[in-house]
Computed example of a mutant assay.
Amino acid sequence: MSADPRAARCVVVVPVKPPTYGKSRLSGLPDDQRRDLAEAFALDTVQAATATPGVDAVLVVTDDHRLAASVRTLGCEVIPDGVSNDLNATLVQAAAEVARRWPGAVPVVLCADLPGVRPVELAGVLGEVHDQVAAGRVAFVRDHTGRGTTLYAAPADAFDPSFGVASATRHEAAGAVEVGTTATSVRTDVDDPDDLGAALLAGVGPHTTRASEGRATHSG
């Protein structure tokens, strides 16, 4: 991980459900392939984050021990899920951990289902985040559907994420500023088979490429 002196110091926080439970909307796939894909999405997401200029560290929040071991080999820090079944409360705890371990760094939540995220695009978004957070504002990236959120960042005293259904609307209504409108790879999360097909066409990381072998031929 390298630092860009023009950008804010950022710690990227990636919450990851245990792959056994993740990506339930990838219907039509065998359970083992769905689990493998969920894990691959997370690995590609965090690997891209570790390669992004301006990122001091990547903190993965998960209760999955196998995944924890895998992301540590990629250079990530890991903490357990703090509040089961409450993502936003877990993220608030993770942000507090960022403040403790990396004083002065901006906690940036990045969803774990961005297998095609490109470090150069993520770095550009972090530059926009820096401008907003330096002005005391909250920033978010809207997903490709326009409804969800793939990235959220805020000053420590304003860190109050609202992930879940229609999160983009809630973040915007709370005064968060949308950034990354042209950062396609940062907006392209994968929730269902159509999303996966589109992501494969646009290009994904090595873990998702391997996990999806044999599927691309019938992805529609």
Rank of each mutant, 00 (worst) to 15 (best):
S219Y: 03
T209M: 03
A156H: 10
R142I: 04
R72F: 14
H218E: 11
H218Q: 05
T62H: 10
D194N: 08
S2W: 05
G127K: 08
L74N: 15
A134Q: 06
R215Q: 11
T62A: 11
S212D: 03
A7K: 04
E97N: 04
G28I: 01
G136F: 06
G205V: 00
V165T: 03
A42E: 02
D81T: 15
V204L: 05
P5M: 14
A135R: 07
R187C: 10
F41Q: 15
T188H: 14
T52S: 13
T45G: 10
V14F: 10
P30T: 05
G82V: 14
A96F: 11
D160I: 10
V133H: 05
T150Q: 01
V98W: 06
A7C: 12
R72H: 11
V108G: 12
G180M: 12
D56W: 00
R137L: 06
G22C: 02
R34P: 04
G124Y: 07
L151F: 13
A123F: 11
L29E: 00
L59C: 01
T90A: 13
A69E: 07
P193D: 01
D32V: 14
A158R: 14
R142T: 05
S185A: 15
Y152P: 13
D36V: 05
G197S: 15
T217R: 14
V98F: 02
S84R: 13
A112G: 07
D31F: 01
V55G: 04
G104L: 10
R35W: 01
A202R: 15
A173N: 13
S162I: 02
G136H: 03
V141R: 01
A123L: 03
V16Y: 13
T184V: 12
L196H: 00
A166G: 09
V13D: 15
G136S: 07
H207Q: 08
E121K: 13
V13K: 07
S167L: 14
R137I: 00
T209K: 05
P19I: 03
G203A: 04
L200E: 10
R6P: 04
P161M: 08
L196Y: 00
G54H: 07
V12N: 06
R215E: 09
A95T: 04
D31P: 01
V108D: 11
Y21R: 10
G175V: 10
S70F: 00
K17G: 08
G82T: 11
V46Y: 04
W102K: 03
Q132E: 11
A49S: 02
G203Q: 05
S162A: 12
L91S: 09
V179N: 08
F163R: 01
E128A: 11
V98I: 03
V141A: 05
R215Y: 06
V12A: 15
